[in-house]
Design a protein around this nucleic acid. Structure first.
Lengths: 245, 245
DNA sequence: TGAGTTAGAGTCATCCTGACTTTTACTCGC
DNA sequence: GCGAGTAAAAGTCAGGATGACTCTAACTCA
């Protein structure tokens, strides 16, 4: 009889029904990688192969139980570090999934976070063969309700991309406007007019032109820009500007 | 060691630190009531007086442990029914609060929902003296981190009001445009131009004019309208159009 | 040196928004 | 019964944002 934190009454219900649901933290981790076919940036995410039942052998979101002394966000960052070795550029709570039918035997409530990272070479070739990167739109059949969770996380990512200032989390300290536009196009799944895109960013308050240009292309050298705004955070420490849903 | 939901290890940590955090569901319930001073609609919420420690005597959000067989949303609707006897017009998950310092002795992770209701006379005068309604902007000092939670729920309400079609949950089946505008003004806390408000709603697809008018005012009788769209839901069963956050 | 390429600036029509004016249709007081 | 008062409903107008597009600038490569 694990997990009897409190007393939930002492009627003649079965042992099984009296057990409170257990709590886990999972994290959807997004990064941009070149598409193997087109070469353009696309959204990928790392998954972990399950070694136990239920859903043994299937791929699943990285996650685990909530440590007694860590906050929810710390637990999510721990998932991130454990599977990729990276620190998040952006980390936000996604949703708490708690349907009664999502796990076969013991009921689990999962508080899911989602994160954006900039993967380096080491992170993309993990030593552990039970960790691998998948295209976020088509990750295959996942364990539990994780397909649904990934889909919702993608929806949230697109939402934040349209209404928030989150695209910079995919990029380095400086970037060209074409690179920034490619991030938007990869996430939103449609092409944007370069001229209008430029005009909108000129009116954005927290994007700043540097004096550097990228040399080497067979065309006019593009100027480098820098993002000067703070990394937006959803709930604690600063409200997100809109929509979220 | 991913997704090991059940076993929490057996190291020589103290009993206290090994206990997993317990899980509770709380619900922020919003309704419109006339302001006692101005008489115009304002946002109110019902609170429950705590009878036990910690925070005994203070007012708190209605809530309780998650039943083993009920979904998260069902538990939130249960909070609602228990404190007000009402069914929600709108119900959405708000956030999972899990900081280590939010409850003194046993750690509690609260998954908080928020709801909109149309209170009737019976619901506004509860028999239980440990339930009372408060103005949502100034509910006084609440137990735990519930002041912060109410503030965040208000922010979310305003957000949904600006970008979603949620105002109808406060109103009955038919309403005048002035009534609808009063709902927006009460929630957003600012006055709206009646002419522009009317124009925007004419272009809304899911609002429909009826053939009825309200007689009795000492002015031109206003037409009654009806909302024909579905009640929006945030995550399961239909995505919210935007922003959320 | 010219062709090719992308960066960046600029143009134009359209839509949306906020602020405002005018007309309509009722009730109330005289 | 008639004018004053009131809010509904429609209409007007300027400014700002947006989408589609054209034109010029600045580089590399053959």
């Amino acid at each position: 009889m694990v997990h009897q934190h409190n007393v939930y009454g002492n009627g003649n219900v079965s042992e099984r029904a009296r057990q409170p649901p257990s709590l886990a933290i999972s994290t959807v981790i997004f990064a941009l990688r070149p598409d193997p076919v087109t070469g353009r940036p696309a959204v990928w995410l790392p998954l972990v192969r399950r070694v136990r039942e239920p859903f043994g052998g299937l791929w699943a979101l990285p996650g685990g139980p909530l440590g007694a002394q860590e906050s929810l966000q710390e637990a999510a960052a721990g998932n991130l570090a454990q599977t990729t070795g990276l620190a998040p550029q952006y980390l936000e709570q996604l949703y708490a999934f708690g349907g009664t039918g999502r796990s076969p035997s013991p009921r689990v409530v999962s508080i899911v976070y989602w994160a954006l990272v900039q993967p380096d070479e080491a992170a993309l070739r993990p030593r552990d063969e039970n960790v691998a990167w998948f295209p976020a739109e088509r990750p295959g059949d996942l364990a539990f309700d994780h397909n649904e969770i990934v889909e919702y996380a993608l929806w949230r990512l697109r939402n934040r991309m349209e209404y928030g200032s989150i695209a910079y989390a995919f990029l380095g300290r400086t970037f060209t406007l074409a690179q920034l536009r490619e991030v938007y196009e990869a996430v939103l799944g449609r092409e944007l007019e370069p001229g209008n895109f430029r005009r909108q960013l000129r009116s954005a308050p927290d994007i700043e032109a540097t004096d550097d240009y990228v040399q080497g292309g067979r065309h006019r050298p593009p100027r480098l820009y820098r993002y000067t705004g703070a990394t937006p955070q959803s709930h604690p420490a600063g409200s997100n500007e809109s929509s979220e849903s």
